[in-house]
Design a protein around this nucleic acid. Structure first.
Lengths: 350, 350
DNA sequence: TTTAGCACTCAGAGGAATAGAGTGCTAAAT
DNA sequence: ATTTAGCACTCTATTCCTCTGAGTGCTAAA
């Protein structure tokens, strides 16, 4: 059951016009946009058909037409011209990705803000390890007799460290022993397993050593658990208020609260495919029923993946958003490099 | 030029009523609230005086009165009863401060969210070192021949570390030499000075060693500069949309954009005093002319200070906000402990 | 100095009238 | 069989009015 070319063309015009104006599109406007190929009356007939078929909707009897989610879907799948970024745009993206390499969280949340201000919709970002984090190596550095630094290398080669205040004085000679035990028995295993092994040791080592061990292991467990759970950052929620569809404060409020309080329920990208578009009711969350989401993923080194999403009205400029978003995703993948994180060098042009 | 007690009492009633209802307060309402002491006619006379004196305003001739910034100021300074937190509230604050000790940034931004959801206004938080950061000690751990971990202890005893990919293979025996130079010459000095000293060394050490040095020092400079500049986090901007004064989308948009884009211009607490209240035009930023800000500070260990602020309409419930905010500030000071950061133990009741 | 009484003001709610964009249908044209 | 012009009809959004009621300021009495 395929539409005629003309119907498709009309649908395309309606979608694009509505994207620009946020006003229902009338037959006359379409006719003039199609450059006199047919008259408005003909178009009215076609429009009636398109409504019948569910691609368009009519807010009320004597208004123009607006696309339905089904209409947007067809547009996205078939009609929309995949935009290429202009040189200026690419440049701008790369500019805004000249981020100082700091903590990963900070980098991605900064990237989120950059995307939001470039695309003019709210965004959300997150990063997650592909596999659950494990400790790979411990290093201990005595600072003074009551404190030492624990350096923890994670499986994915990130490094975490912390100054640990010890609950008792410690003989510097014990440090290597401690490190030895940690590296022998507490690397490459889950946090649950770590706790179990710690318990097992409670009898076989001196109480004093055991205390030190527990403190260190507790720290490691914290770090690993934190590394596993992804934090989602949102940015630019205020952008929504510029849009006519959110002149209604209550609607805006609902969505903005959702973005800041229920971030976890934002759509995730599919494994495999680099980009996903969800239109209106295709979203599960109630709060997103009248909005569309475009979400892309990127690689962070070899072991982690990041996601970056954009939320906007169903009438969003899918072509542009998709192009820019994937521009950013590519930029981020490049930034993080296919090597281990984090690269200190600037990224190069490909 | 002091107000009579009765005028003050009337002003107090007006402020508190307006805080609750967001509606101009009429003479009759005041009379009934003051329990029959005087008639509404008398109050009308007093109101006229208060308008004359600049403590109240009249939106239009036949409406009730609302407080002017000057009126709020008097209220805050003299009239408002310093609220004590209920046991339940204190409990709730402590609950929400049961934060896992992760990175400092994360902890304070979580705290910000907690405050926002407790006080129901947007908040902003930041942390800053009291003095500019310096490196205190370097440690280097060889991982393999082309990478090593740099552990950097800062002056304030925070610890930062990072896996560094070296640009050339390195003999493990060089590591101690490298560490020696770093600790001898690059500790306790400003980042500018670090760069100068690096240059000085370019002649006197082997090119290969120099390369390693530069990489390490570059990392240290990054870390120190990052530690110096404070990142400001905002949370709960959406809360504004619940308030009647922000039914006007444009107004809301202006303020929300300000909160997310111009955070740096949010008011800072005064050195010394623990809390500061800025009412309406007392704020410098244009965007805050019609809002009030309450900002408190807290200690993070011995070497850093944090700030936590609340933004709301001028009609904000100063008494409650002040009480709760200082409750949080105290909680945070306790959480971070008067010892070095971060304490692994749970905080105890005082 | 306080109070009762009263005429006056003005913002906001509600309702009727109007304008105009856009439709659907019919009948002619291609 | 399509397409087109023409026209009556529909329906929202806007404008303009009126009306209501809260609240005032003033005056004159207590």
């Amino acid at each position: 059951m395929d539409l005629t070319d003309r119907k498709k063309q009309i649908l395309k015009v309606v979608v694009e016009d509505y994207i620009n104006t946020a006003e229902p599109v009338g037959s006359k406007a379409i006719a003039s946009e199609m450059e006199g190929a047919v008259s408005s009356a003909t178009i009215r007939n076609e429009l009636a058909d398109l409504v019948e078929l569910g691609y368009l909707e009519q807010p009320h009897t004597s208004a123009g037409r607006i696309p339905s989610p089904k209409g947007y879907r067809l547009y996205v799948n078939e009609l929309m011209e995949r935009q290429r970024l202009s040189l200026a745009e690419t440049e701008k993206i790369n500019q805004s990705l000249h981020l100082k390499m700091e903590e990963l969280d900070r980098v991605i949340s900064q990237a989120g803000r950059a995307v939001s201000s470039f695309i003019n919709y709210p965004t959300y970002v997150a990063a997650a390890g592909k596999k659950s984090a494990v400790a790979r190596r411990f290093e201990l550095l005595a600072v003074d007799e009551k404190s030492c630094i624990v350096v923890l290398m994670l499986g994915d080669k990130r490094v975490k460290s912390q100054l640990l205040r010890l609950q008792l004085k410690v003989d510097p000679e014990q440090i290597p022993t401690l490190a030895g035990i940690l590296n022998d028995r507490f690397t490459g295993i889950s946090t649950d397993e770590m706790n179990t092994r710690l318990m097992d040791l409670s009898e076989s080592v001196s109480p004093q050593l055991f205390l030190l061990l527990s403190q260190t292991v507790a720290y490691a467990v914290d770090v690993l658990e934190e590394a596993g759970q992804k934090e989602i950052y949102t940015a630019g929620a205020g952008q929504l208020l510029k849009l006519p569809e959110f002149r209604d404060v209550d609607k805006a409020h609902e969505l903005i609260s959702f973005l800041s309080d229920d971030k976890e329920h934002l759509p995730m990208p599919d494994e495999g495919s680099p980009m996903k578009i969800l239109i209106g009711p295709e979203n599960i969350s109630q709060a997103l029923q009248d909005t569309s989401v475009v979400v892309a993923s990127y690689d962070i080194g070899d072991d982690m993946r990041g996601l970056i999403g954009v939320v906007g009205p169903t009438r969003m400029d899918y072509a542009t958003v998709a192009a820019r978003l994937s521009g950013f995703a590519d930029g981020l993948t490049r930034l993080f490099g296919k090597k281990n994180l984090p690269p200190k060098e600037d990224q190069k042009e490909t």
